[in-house]
Design a binder for these strands. Structure first.
Lengths: 136, 136
DNA sequence: ATGGTTGCAAACAGTTTGCATCCTG
DNA sequence: CAGGATGCAAACTGTTTGCAACCAT
């Protein structure tokens, strides 16, 4: 590579990883790899996807992030937000994090049929506030 | 069951597609492509995966089947069972279809935050009856 | 014979991994 | 200078598609 023009500012302690996890934490909801990569590119022009995947895997192993598969697409989200679910807007496609839970199924509950529930996942689909306001 | 004599027991108008959709309908829950393929192989020894995928795509276009992504794996399920959800056993890995719904969110409901709910999806994780009985 | 169906393999998209290089300490 | 981090490209896995052979009508 050619030497360059100006020294780029970089995070300390880790290299691009910091930026990636920061973006993940700052996100309004789970992000796809392309989306995360593209957001990171504005700060790290030479970032490769491999690094994004590697970082995500690391974060998952550390329990700092986890994967959410929605409509067949893999999204990543920072951990530590406690119990929550997601809302996928059918108009703008964005995914939001919901704070309230619509089901009462504490771990240990025996569901009709004899299924012992240990955890549950809920995803709501519809119109987000903005899209609902824009059109009916 | 079909007549055992000479007339080959093949559906009219389609070839292996019939077998595949029959297996899908008979399944106890959504199936993965490898699983569906392997079940079909017992009846159609030369069946290729491509045909399975092609058939599934056709069935989806006809609204006779739909995809269910669970833990990042794509599963296929016959349609027409009305509103239902799934239970994934963490021990045996099998996925079951539940008949009762644990949430009360009729379409049109406005969820806290202003999200207009059009549909919802629920997945429960835990021990299926068999696995729960086998071990605590 | 004709058109829809299928198997095989190549093509593809998303994700992971090997390797040489670059960076931080 | 050493060890970890990164980019690039090859390797993989799951899914789709092109094409010639195949089957039922």
């Amino acid at each position: 590579m050619s030497a360059a023009a100006s020294p780029a500012p970089r995070p300390k302690g880790t290299r691009q990883r910091g930026v990636i996890s920061r973006l993940l934490i700052a996100a309004e909801g789970p992000l796809s790899v392309p989306e995360l990569h593209s957001r990171a590119l504005t700060e790290l022009p030479s970032l490769g996807v491999a690094t994004v995947y590697r970082t995500l895997k690391l974060l998952q192993e550390q329990g700092a992030a986890h994967i959410v598969t929605l409509d067949g697409e893999n999204l990543y989200e920072a951990s530590g937000r406690g119990h929550h679910h997601h809302f996928a807007c059918r108009s703008c496609g964005r995914v939001f994090t919901l704070s309230t839970c619509p089901v009462a199924l504490p771990p240990g509950t025996v569901y009709p049929g004899g299924f012992v529930v240990e955890a549950h996942e809920v995803t709501l689909y519809g119109q987000c506030p903005a899209c609902a306001a824009a059109q009916g």
